[in-house]
Deep mutational scan, measured.
Amino acid sequence: TTLHFDLDGKKLQYTGVSEEIARLVEELKRRGVDLKEIVRILEELLK
């Protein structure tokens, strides 16, 4: 799965993300978590 974000005018793309992580990101968005925080979490998970 590939995730795309537009953060402060920067286009971020994460490829090869598992379905689980993609679902987690969608859930965080639904809960109103700040996009910067979501990206920070995502980068930690993908290390």
Rank of each mutant, 00 (worst) to 15 (best):
T1P: 07
T1M: 14
T1C: 03
T1Y: 09
T1D: 09
T1Q: 14
T1V: 15
T2Y: 02
T2A: 06
T2N: 13
T2V: 08
T2H: 08
L3A: 00
L3R: 00
L3E: 02
L3I: 15
L3Q: 01
H4S: 08
H4C: 08
H4K: 04
H4G: 05
F5A: 01
F5Y: 02
F5R: 00
F5H: 01
F5N: 01
F5V: 05
F5I: 09
F5S: 01
D6S: 02
D6A: 03
D6P: 00
D6W: 11
L7S: 02
L7C: 06
L7V: 14
L7E: 04
L7I: 15
L7T: 02
L7H: 03
L7Q: 03
L7K: 00
D8R: 00
D8W: 01
D8L: 02
D8E: 10
D8K: 01
G9L: 01
G9T: 02
G9C: 03
G9P: 00
G9F: 01
G9Y: 01
G9R: 00
G9W: 00
G9H: 02
K10A: 10
K10V: 14
K10D: 10
K10G: 07
K11S: 11
K11A: 07
K11R: 08
K11D: 11
K11T: 11
K11V: 05
K11M: 07
K11P: 06
K11Q: 12
L12C: 04
L12F: 08
L12V: 15
L12D: 01
L12Q: 04
L12E: 03
L12K: 05
L12S: 04
Q13Y: 10
Q13K: 11
Q13P: 01
Q13H: 15
Q13G: 04
Q13I: 14
Q13D: 08
Q13R: 07
Y14W: 06
Y14A: 01
Y14M: 03
Y14V: 04
Y14C: 02
Y14S: 00
T15M: 07
T15G: 07
T15R: 05
T15Q: 12
T15K: 07
G16S: 05
G16H: 12
G16N: 15
G16E: 10
G16I: 03
G16P: 02
G16D: 12
V17D: 01
V17W: 00
V17R: 00
V17Y: 00
V17H: 00
S18T: 12
S18Y: 02
S18F: 03
E19S: 09
E19G: 07
E19L: 09
E19C: 03
E19I: 14
E19D: 14
E19Q: 12
E19M: 11
E20W: 06
E20H: 08
E20A: 10
E20M: 05
E20Y: 05
I21A: 09
I21N: 12
I21F: 06
A22T: 09
A22V: 15
A22M: 10
A22C: 10
A22F: 11
A22D: 03
A22P: 01
R23G: 13
R23Y: 13
R23A: 15
R23D: 13
R23M: 14
L24M: 13
L24D: 14
L24P: 03
L24H: 15
L24W: 12
L24S: 15
L24G: 13
V25N: 02
V25H: 02
V25E: 00
V25W: 01
V25F: 03
E26K: 07
E26V: 09
E26W: 07
E26D: 14
E26Y: 10
E26N: 11
E26M: 10
E26G: 11
E26Q: 12
E26S: 09
E27G: 08
E27K: 07
E27I: 07
E27Y: 06
E27S: 08
L28E: 09
L28T: 05
L28V: 05
L28N: 08
K29H: 14
K29L: 14
K29P: 04
K29C: 09
K29T: 11
K29A: 14
R30G: 15
R30P: 03
R30S: 14
R30I: 14
R30T: 13
R30Y: 11
R30W: 09
R30D: 12
R31V: 14
R31H: 13
R31P: 02
R31D: 13
R31Q: 15
R31A: 14
R31S: 12
G32I: 06
G32H: 13
G32A: 13
G32T: 06
G32V: 06
G32W: 05
G32S: 15
G32C: 08
G32K: 12
V33S: 08
V33D: 09
V33M: 11
V33R: 07
V33T: 13
V33I: 11
V33Q: 10
V33W: 06
D34P: 15
D34T: 09
D34K: 09
D34I: 11
D34E: 14
L35E: 10
L35C: 04
L35Q: 10
L35Y: 05
L35K: 06
L35W: 02
L35V: 15
L35T: 15
K36Y: 13
K36P: 09
K36V: 12
K36C: 06
K36L: 12
K36N: 12
K36A: 12
E37S: 09
E37T: 10
E37M: 09
E37N: 07
E37I: 10
E37C: 07
E37P: 03
I38A: 03
I38V: 14
I38C: 05
I38G: 00
I38N: 00
I38F: 01
I38D: 00
I38Q: 07
I38K: 00
V39H: 03
V39R: 02
V39Y: 02
V39D: 00
V39K: 02
V39P: 00
R40E: 11
R40M: 11
I41G: 05
I41S: 07
I41M: 10
I41K: 09
I41T: 13
I41Y: 08
L42T: 04
L42M: 06
L42D: 00
L42P: 00
L42K: 00
L42G: 00
E43K: 03
E43A: 04
E43C: 02
E43Y: 02
E43F: 03
E43I: 05
E43L: 04
E44K: 09
E44V: 11
E44C: 07
E44R: 09
E44G: 12
L45K: 14
L45V: 08
L45W: 08
L45M: 12
L45G: 05
L46N: 03
L46Q: 04
L46V: 06
L46I: 10
L46R: 03
L46D: 03
L46T: 05
L46M: 08
K47P: 10
K47E: 11
K47V: 12
K47L: 13
K47S: 13
